[in-house]
């Protein structure tokens, strides 16, 4: 993968001058490349990874991982029905998977009840959905390569020859 993408995948907020330094390119070259990736949709966007357990004021979010079995359609396969599901704003991610189920749907809401409602009213009644199985996420250890628990500590002496 392009080195610029690797750096940004690691840290979407790395400033242009540091990107330029790390890539041995000029800032304007980097900016041009970046714009191209954005224009072509290679870069979908920039998000922030938040540890909500560290916030007292924000409402906690409940995350449901829902396995969905669907019947593929003659023309559109899984795509059409998947779209009907992932177009719902509650759906944060949606993946087509091999194995026991077809779609893994990551749903976020502020209460358990909202997720239950979503499954009962929006998902399960869909014509080609024939089974769902919901899991609730209890704790995040690591997300997007970032540790939510402190990583294993550095045992090295802080000065060595």
């Amino acid at each position: 993968m392009d080195r610029l993408l690797e750096l940004l995948e690691d840290n979407g907020r790395m400033p242009l001058n540091e990107l330029a330094g790390a890539l041995e390119m000029s800032e304007s070259e980097v900016a041009k490349k970046l714009e191209k990736f954005e224009r072509e949709g290679v870069i979908k966007g920039y998000k922030t990874v938040i540890d909500r357990t560290k916030l007292d004021d924000a409402p906690q979010s409940i995350i449901g991982l829902i396995e969905v079995n669907i019947s593929p359609q003659p023309d559109t396969g899984f795509d059409q029905i998947a779209r009907e599901i992932y177009d719902h704003p509650e759906v944060r991610s949606c993946y087509l998977c091999s194995g026991d189920y077809d779609l893994l749907v990551w749903v976020e809401a502020s209460t358990l009840n909202e997720i239950a409602e979503f499954v009962a009213r929006e998902l399960a009644p869909l014509k080609n959905v024939h089974k769902t199985e919901s899991h609730f996420m209890l704790k995040i250890y690591k997300e997007g390569g970032l540790y939510f628990e402190p990583p294993t500590s550095d045992h090295r002496l802080s000065i060595s020859p």
Partner: peptide, 25 residues
Amino acid sequence: SGIRDFFDLVMSMDDVISLGVGEPD
């Protein structure tokens, strides 16, 4: 060793980012 004193000073402090380590992280 030229770095001994310095080592003691570093060890006495908190929250140090060390760029003084001669081994892989």
